[in-house]
Write a protein that binds this DNA or RNA. Structure first.
Lengths: 207, 207
DNA sequence: AGCGTTTGATTGATTGACCAAATAAACGTT
DNA sequence: AACGTTTATTTGGTCAATCAATCAAACGCT
């Protein structure tokens, strides 16, 4: 039951933090949601910050699994036999679906960003969070660039930063306004990047 | 002295909020920074939320002025005689400069986003903030699209959402990690968008 | 005298962290 | 298998500190 208890606390933390936000949630609230005594949360997690980080990792699990089911490891190199362009396309599609399915996760993520602005421990977690995901996009981008006849001036890292940024900027707009058409924005981003990398070839296909 | 006092409070709020963040800043702190009694802050601003919104508007002033000096009104239509493409280029350059000069403003902005996630009043301010800026980008985008031989599938609004998102995603990366090369990322975004809209012409210039 | 401004003490409520003690589980010894 | 011992888990309450907001009173200008 020990591990199960810890899991129950993390899960309760995720739900409570999503619903009420970091600053409006107390350790007592989380403990109550998990159905345990207040002190127990502190037994497993020294500070509320640790619990926030754990809750986000917990919430990211389904996304990581989705990529793994597609045969892609977020933290490793792309599969040798994968077409980077196809991985990119899939990434945009997955982003749209995730935004639809895991709205709470994005809420919590932006909450973490906000807390990280003035909290060293969370800031470190945020930097890691960003770097991992940006590096993943950079690997895809590098793969795409390698296959380009007329490679861009910008580095793969810089392009990845712009794409990661765009996705998260779109997520933010969606989180702040559910009526926002995130699919259209991601489609626009997709069209833009794909047209960009297929510039030379497209030139011959002008109808 | 009344108006001057209000201004002094807003300015103190800006500095304090940037330094310590919304949740870590008390009305007392702001009043102390302004050199006035705690109650006076509440005399001019009913709630801390109002003070945050005022502080951000205050902090945005220099940016708005910079655009006006360049002959562009953020909330109105573009000048008739302006080349949308040039306005776009200028926008990217200005973004780089602002990020260098007004780091505190971006910190405060993201803080506001974070607070807005679970605070109705701030959320409304955030939505307005986003929509105004996105609409501005959309006007530029529309102008650029109109001049395109082979217009994109995506609407100007969708493209504007992707670009606004990218810029703010880049700002976020810079704010969270000062070592991040935001200029390179913005250059990449610029290269991407400009290459995108000049696709057909570029196609004839393949060397 | 009167009004807009300013003061600063007070209110009522909340928080994260901490702790000492109760309980349960695991283990080795005989 | 019965026991004593150690370790792991869980409890619930305390703690000092903090906060946004209120308000009656004082101030100072006209």
């Amino acid at each position: 039951m020990p591990d199960q208890t810890k899991e129950r606390i993390v899960d309760a933390a995720y739900r409570t933090l999503v619903k009420r936000g970091y600053h409006e949630t107390s350790m007592k609230d989380i403990a109550a949601e998990a159905g345990v005594a207040p002190g127990l949360a502190h037994y497993y997690f020294e500070t509320k910050e640790d619990l926030l980080v754990a809750a986000i990792e917990h919430g990211c699990q389904p996304v990581i699994s989705a990529w793994q089911r597609a045969g892609v490891d977020l933290s490793g190199p792309l599969p040798e036999d994968a077409d980077p362009m196809m991985v990119a396309r899939m990434g945009f599609e997955l982003a749209k679906e995730e935004l639809r399915t895991y709205r709470g996760l994005f809420l919590l993520t932006f909450d973490m960003f906000g807390v990280g602005l003035h909290n060293a421990k969370i800031a470190a977690a945020v930097r890691t969070f960003i770097e991992e995901r940006r590096a993943f996009i950079a690997r895809i981008t590098q793969g795409v660039i390698t296959g380009m006849a007329d490679p861009p001036i910008a580095s793969a890292d810089a392009i990845a930063a712009a794409i990661w940024g765009s996705l998260h900027g779109i997520y933010l707009q969606k989180v702040m306004n559910p009526a926002f058409d995130a699919d259209a924005a991601i489609d626009a981003l997709s069209e833009m990047t794909i047209a960009f990398v297929s510039r030379p070839r497209v030139s011959l296909e002008v109808r």
